[in-house]
Amino acid sequence: MHQTLNATPQSPVVSLKNVHKSFGPLKVLDGVSFAVDRGEVLVLIGRSGSGKSTALRCIDRFEKIDSGEIVVCDHRVSDPKLDLRALRQDVGIVFQSYNLFPHLTIEENITLAPCSVKGVSKAQAKEQARQVLAQVGLEDKLHQYPEQLSGGQQQRAAIARSLAMQPKVMLFDEVTSALDPELTGEVLKVIEALAADGMTMVMVTHEMGFARGIANRVVFMHRGKVHETGPAAILTSPATPELAQFVGTGL
């Protein structure tokens, strides 16, 4: 059967349907389903080990799923014939450890992928680097090396590096977990601005206050399952005892 995927404005940017994933005997994702529409911010929360990072990594095919279906920006991620690099041009991912390339300046970190993957000219890429760095408030760090930046600045630079590829969706995995509260604030501000600009995002975070403010949809994962999902309001009035316990309101 031949099936084409229609890129209608209504189709979700990211959708997971009944996704299963095990590491050896350990079942990490046990029938996970959720979808993210254009311009939406989905926040994944849950205890350590509940499978949040794994779910996020499956979206960008850093992990292969055992069964189920993942579609991202009309790429069928679960298809073995997936054009991986095309998928990753549409998806930006930022990790907890910023992973800037230490031997390259911030500008070179940012221009590397646009120049070598998209064939953008050096001059154009540099102009774009200036723009994305302005977006994260780091215009003056263009010619610095990563180690010359604070953790928060490095993380913002990593976000800028992803933005330079003009992704259709951004994935964030606990991007502030390595930062102290002050630096966390500056990174979260950048993410808020992105959300306000209409960027579609899926993020894992432990910052509950931040999640409440930014999430259009919250997915609470528990033992590899979507245990509870809904608008940000579920964080203040959870329906399940597990989520209630997690957000610390008690029942």
């Binding site: 990753r88 990790f95 590397l112 992928a113 992803s162 590829m165």
Partner: peptide, 26 residues
């Protein structure tokens, strides 16, 4: 570090580009 290579993969660089820019020079 593995994270360097994953970051490069996430940016859609090819295997050869990753070897050249992210692995070999550093």
């Amino acid at each position: 570090p593995r994270g360097q290579i994953e970051a490069a993969e996430g940016l859609a660089l090819s295997r050869a580009q990753i070897y050249w820019h992210v692995v070999m020079w550093p």
